[in-house]
Design a protein around this nucleic acid. Sequence first.
DNA 1: TTCCGTGCAAACAATTTGCAGAATT
DNA 2: AATTCTGCAAATTGTTTGCACGGAA
Lengths: 139, 139
Amino acid sequence: MEQLNSLFKEKSLKVTPQRYAIYKYLKSTKSHPSAETIYEDLKVNYPTMSLATVYKTLRTLIEIGLVKEINVGEDNFRYDANVDTHPHLICRSCSRVDDIENYNFTFINEEAQKLTDYIIEDSKLFFYGICPECQKEGR
Amino acid sequence: MEQLNSLFKEKSLKVTPQRYAIYKYLKSTKSHPSAETIYEDLKVNYPTMSLATVYKTLRTLIEIGLVKEINVGEDNFRYDANVDTHPHLICRSCSRVDDIENYNFTFINEEAQKLTDYIIEDSKLFFYGICPECQKEGR
DNA sequence: TTCCGTGCAAACAATTTGCAGAATT
DNA sequence: AATTCTGCAAATTGTTTGCACGGAA
């Protein structure tokens, strides 16, 4: 949360309860929720929270680099407060999205840099398959 | 086009001028167009073409595996008739999308497989940076 | 003749925007 | 006190759907 406070001060953005709650929520989960899901979950404790505020806050957090936006092939975006570049696992049966952690994939950026005249700054890597739970269910 | 003809026959789908044109267009370009762009470009020669038909055809082509859908972080999807798994380069200045070809990245699937209990079937890899043209323009 | 596809318009869903009132600095 | 943010509703945009007509098998 210190990151939020100091970065907001620096950019002269206001730390409102809504913004705080949204960022804290994203920091606390690994489920890569959509805006709608964030909204639904926060509404319980923040009954006046509006979906528009969720979207506006997410946009702000993305702009200052505290959140990343991903699209795994659905009709909506998902949000992740883990901004370290890391691969995602997407289950094509239940649509859950997991992280691959503790493994450094950044070498692929360097690998790609050798193959192109682009200046490569970042990458997104998605693996598609079947999660352990769905395998057990025989899906 | 043989792929289209034989696959369509197999699935008892009809090869209409619209479907043929959309697939031929996608096969002929490396620009990863959106549905809207495909529609605009084909309208010149197919004045009765409808955007709904473009969407329906793309859905059909995806289902039989002749086209892949990608989302590079924009508000819409882009379509690619190169269905071999290959990485994409996205310019964060002009939004163009290029391919990385002639390099096999599939080893990352195997690499990821070691790190997870998912059954990994496919992957999507996007590199973000600045394309050569935008570099020249100093963007 | 049957079935499937097209194209129009309407429907839908995700996201953005405008603005008045409210809260933060 | 000044500025920024919230929350509502309306607007916008990308995509899908329903359905009558047309055309291919």
